[in-house]
Design a protein around this nucleic acid. Structure first.
Lengths: 125, 125
DNA sequence: TAATATATTAGCTATTTAGCTAAGTACTAG
DNA sequence: CTAGTACTTAGCTAAATAGCTAATATATTA
């Protein structure tokens, strides 16, 4: 379960346009590092994802992108694994699943409470 | 539909602990201003919600709370209505509903893509 | 009409954030 | 073992943020 501090970290991570776009890139782009394309005969998804591949999609320096990725990692929005030279990045879908559940619960509880409220009103008439 | 800029505003609004707690207060506490308790014979929900009632729950100045509420309003996370002297606040459940849908779509698409990936693998064998 | 209650605006400060470049670490390949 | 690749760390600056108090606006009530 995500506690409050964790949720706040997630919202903070997603509250900056650059990080939001990195997040989007990682969740919709795939999981393979475009740098690997340089290896002969290897067919890979050309969209994502190691740090420098993500950086290719932005007009910011590599250290800037690296810092953003670190923040997304600490918010547990992405997963990161170092393999040799490279850092491979993939979505942390479980966090997003939990977040979806949290918001859905909020909506459901709200609807139930509203129903309760009106039921009560009817009973009184 | 929430566009990117709107989503970023929402995440930013919820990325500060004070605002997150105000948000929580408003969504779980009810819709009636505790200041109204001062009116004789009026039974009201004692938890929320006009600006000074919200402020009662925090050790921050009224202007600070007012500014936070403004930011939550601009993120369309709450609805605000001035009645006479007071500003009444209530949850904007539609925004939360849309947010829940966004995250759920992300999860569903991810699951579908993963299924696609494995189906493909099987077909090739 | 004056006093009170509710909320916002203005103007301030300390802290945090997001960007940068330069330098350092760690691995790979020639 | 040297050169190159991938990434992170350190240290910097400008801008944004979160808090405050004082002043202002507006509505209510005595």
């Amino acid at each position: 379960m995500l506690d409050m501090e964790q949720k706040i970290k997630i919202f903070k991570a997603l509250s900056n346009k650059t990080r939001f776009l990195i997040f989007k890139n990682i969740f919709t782009g795939g999981y393979t590092c475009s740098v690997d394309k340089k290896q002969a005969g290897v067919e890979v998804n050309p969209i994502a994802t190691c740090v420098s591949t993500v950086a290719e999609h932005f007009n910011f320096s590599l250290p800037t992108i690296s810092a953003h990725i670190k923040e997304l990692k600490e918010a547990q929005v992405i997963l990161v694994e170092k393999k040799g030279n490279k850092v491979y990045i993939e979505p942390n879908i479980e966090t997003i699943r939990e977040l979806a559940e949290c918001f859905q619960t909020l909506v459901t509880n709200f609807d139930n409470n509203r129903e309760l409220f009106f039921t009560d009103t009817v009973a009184v008439k």
